[in-house]
Amino acid sequence: MKVTELWRFRWLFLNLLIREIRNRYVGSLSGIFSIIFNPLALLAIYAFVFATILRIKFPALVEYNFTVFLALALWPWLAFQEGTQRGTLSIQSNGNLVKKVAFPHELLVYSAVTATYIVHLGGFLLVLLALVLFGSAINLLALPLVISILGVQFLFTLGLALALAAMQVLIKDTEQYLSPVFMIWFYATPILYPASLVPASMHQVIMLNPMAYFTGRIRDLLLYKNCQFGLVDAAEIAGTVVFFLLARLFFNRLSPHFEDFL
């Protein structure tokens, strides 16, 4: 389906999005837990283990607080991970709809991922505000650029979720492999440690990971106040767009067959 045709379904998308947000986050205790307590608890335990118990002092981070350093990358990562996981299951869990009603299936994936991003963006902004109030030197002027980077990361998440959602319909245990993969991915991404600590020989490999770019760039903007954009940024953005388009092609190739497998 062409993007212009998709525009006709904007109202449906909005409805699905609202439904998604309400289902998951409004009015249920676990929803509130997942928005606020889950990330805060993660942040607290990492800060406790790394800064208090292990007493790790990164040489690159002498003038920065480890908790602040971690918080800036943790929320974008959680949005990415949760968005991908929700998106992966979105087609299967709406199987009854897919089997009975004709509409562009990709909207289900988009609404699942978008809902996660909206909620975590809200959490992220609150955390930034809290950090500033407690006196951390965060470059809030770069916020529009940060949101643009998050937008590119959002596009990357959409692409990954599209591909995985289609896989999930055809291969039911796709989702089970996601948790270990995300675990490895999390540690392979410079979130708990600065990218500068990665040995030079492995630096290139680590930077092939788009998530390393996104989280790194967000820290750059907010913490190191580096607002210079260059060739790497252009390449990452272009790469993400191409990835998304290919993933969407993959999804839409398979989507007419979903009904047969659900």
């Binding site: 006709r8 109202w11 449906l12 409805n15 439904r19 009603v101 509409f103």
Partner: peptide, 12 residues
């Protein structure tokens, strides 16, 4: 009603 009608292609 809103959700189902949207699924059937009705506008707001």
């Amino acid at each position: 009603i809103y959700l189902t009608a949207a699924l059937m292609g009705m506008t707001k």
